[in-house]
Design a protein around this nucleic acid. Structure first.
Lengths: 200, 200
DNA sequence: AGCTTAACCGGACCAAAGTCCGTTTGTCCA
DNA sequence: TGGACAAACGGACTTTGGTCCGGTTAAGCT
């Protein structure tokens, strides 16, 4: 058994103790700064300073600012993901695809309403950031599976997620839309897209 | 007749000669730089230098980088806008709403395919930039009118435009989608959303 | 315990967007 | 023609995201 093989056995080379400690510190500092000064106070420099850590450390851990913010949201999103996988219908398994998709997007809108600024920041702080974040991949796969009987489930899932784009919805809010109107619009859209006619 | 009234009469206070000259210079320089070095060469500093103009001038004229790029695209987009307003069906007036919407989004996808990098730049270089650019407002209004018989035409128009979001489609392209697949997906979506059942 | 090494650390440095303000200039009217 | 003033000018300055690299240290092995 050679070294390469051993290398492969312990999959993730395990994070060093100082690295783990600093990750926690940074996340902590970021949460604190956001709580105090909102999204505006969330500059990488400020976070690094508050965490008593070098700036380079923040970027090594989280890739870029978008990744840092995504990590900040991760906890909340994980809860929704678990409800989808293990919870009861209509969010969890058991309900018809259309109901599940609707329940998911509705739940996601609640999440969005609660954390609009953060989600928007993580989605707009770099081109393409939205689609690379782990949670987007999860949502997308979930919806694609629910659309399996459509002509192009993968594309359709992206379109459905487009309705909950943070930047769009932030803009709609600024133009006076209330969340109920957005919810209704999304529901109508889902109804039409996953509607009765499964297409040949 | 007081001064305020006079002020109102000549609506746009007319642009000063030097201002107009510099606008042209900047646009020219930007187009040249882009032609030579692509989207990467398009920094505001470089544009200002190439136009032999101060940086402040660029920002005063175009607001921000997003505005500059939008102005660069303006010419091309105007052509499409004219075909929509004055041209023949199915793009212009005369065809049924669903056909017109489909024709528009298809034509827009052609535009997007031709200028993906620039459109993406103009839509992502600042949060909310996409929705503030003049042309987005035009596209949105056009679609909203075509959706007039739906429950919330304004919202639906935003959703339809979501399918041609530059950042999304750039990502799809990078993941191996070809334009035909995207076209087909958009067409299916439009078909379902503006489909037979106009909903109560 | 001592050695090796890969991972980590931090902060100086860089690039690029956007702001500011003292100076210049076009335009209009007398 | 010339004087007044709003508008435009330009480039130094600020801010912020992201990179780099020489020094440090945790973890595992002997």
């Amino acid at each position: 058994m050679n070294d390469e093989l051993l290398q492969v056995l312990r999959r993730p080379p395990r994070e060093r103790a100082d690295a783990a400690r600093n990750r926690a510190r940074v996340l902590d500092a970021a949460a604190r700064l956001f709580a105090e000064g909102g999204v505006e106070a969330l500059t990488v420099d400020a976070v690094a300073r508050a965490a008593e850590v070098g700036k380079g450390t923040v970027f090594r851990r989280f890739g870029d600012k978008s990744g840092l913010v995504a990590a900040l949201l991760d906890q909340r999103e994980r809860e929704l993901q678990e409800r989808i996988v293990f919870g009861g219908p209509p969010l969890g398994p058991g309900a018809p695809a259309r109901e599940r998709a609707l329940a998911f997007l509705d739940a996601y809108l609640t999440h969005l309403a609660d954390h609009l600024d953060l989600v928007r920041l993580s989605e707009t702080s770099a081109p393409g950031a939205r689609y690379r974040v782990g949670s987007y991949v999860f949502w997308h796969r979930h919806l694609a599976i629910l659309c399996a009987d459509r002509p192009d489930p993968d594309h359709l899932a992206h379109v459905l997620l487009g309705t909950v784009d943070a930047d769009l919805n932030a803009e709609l809010r600024e133009r006076g839309y209330d969340w109920d109107r957005i919810r209704a619009g999304v529901a109508t859209t889902v109804g039409a897209l996953l509607g009765p006619a499964p297409r040949a």
